[in-house]
């Protein structure tokens, strides 16, 4: 089986209206920017997107929001995006906000074959409404269920032809768990190398979790909050 995709169109083939997609990234860091732009071109609609954030107005998942291709967002933090706020307040967009650690663990659980787990996060808040509560070690915990996706789209720094991935710095974030939780996982990489080039000791995501890999064409890597100090 050849995991390497000749182009982005082939890489995203099969993504259809109404599907659930996991999209890696934290803010604009580590998002599969080429794939997101291609999803806009494809025009697929009524998507449920699981992603920690929703991009900014004109970049990242904000592009899919602008084009009204997203029906539901599952995220932990969605500030910095006016179009998102507008669609949510007007009821056009369904939003499920979950604590960031629970979101990460729900993706991990989905990929690891664990259907649900108990966590203290959100107990006593509106996040806990309708969820089973159990006491462990004298402390209340709520039941959170695993998440999976029809397609997971992740972004890595380096990938090989076997689908093994290495991420860079904090661009790792949600990508490894989402890679595990997709029925089909597509990896957009900055540098695609032949199998055997990457040191097996330093692989972050083993290729078993990745069905398709492609080299992204352009990486703009926009910075959301440029903060510097003076010399």
């Amino acid at each position: 089986m050849n995991k390497v995709q000749p182009n982005i169109q082939k890489a995203l083939e099969g993504i259809q209206n109404g599907m659930t997609l996991m999209i890696g990234g934290f803010g604009l860091c580590g998002i599969p920017e080429n794939a997101i732009k291609e999803l806009v071109k494809m025009g697929v609609k009524d998507l449920t997107c699981i992603s920690n954030n929703a991009g900014v107005d004109d970049y990242g998942l904000g592009l899919l929001l602008q084009a009204k291709q997203i029906k539901k967002m599952i995220s932990s933090y969605v500030g910095e995006n006016e179009e998102f706020e507008r669609q949510m307040l007007s009821g056009e967009l369904e939003v499920d906000l979950i604590p960031q650690g629970s979101l990460a663990e729900r993706c991990r659980a989905g990929g690891a074959g664990i259907p649900a787990f108990f966590t203290p996060a959100g107990y006593g808040t509106e996040v806990a409404v309708g969820k089973e509560v159990r006491i462990f070690n004298n402390k209340p915990h709520i039941l959170e269920q695993a998440l999976t996706a029809d397609f997971s789209i992740v972004k890595a720094w380096k990938g090989d032809t076997e689908g093994n991935l290495i991420y860079k710095a904090t661009a790792m974030n949600f990508n490894p768990m989402m890679a595990m939780a997709g029925k089909i996982t597509i990896a957009e990489v900055e540098e695609l190398v032949p199998a055997g080039t990457l040191d097996p000791n330093f692989i972050h995501t083993p290729g078993i979790f990745v069905q398709r890999v492609f080299q992204g064409e352009v990486f703009e890597k926009r910075i959301e909050q440029r903060t510097v100090r003076t010399r």
């Binding site: 932990s76 969605v78 500030g79 906000l97 604590p99 960031q100 650690g101 629970s102 203290p120 996060a121």
Partner: peptide, 12 residues
């Protein structure tokens, strides 16, 4: 309505 981010996990 921006979301809780990691705050709920942290305080819990």
């Amino acid at each position: 309505v921006k979301g809780m981010g990691g705050a709920m996990d942290l305080v819990a």
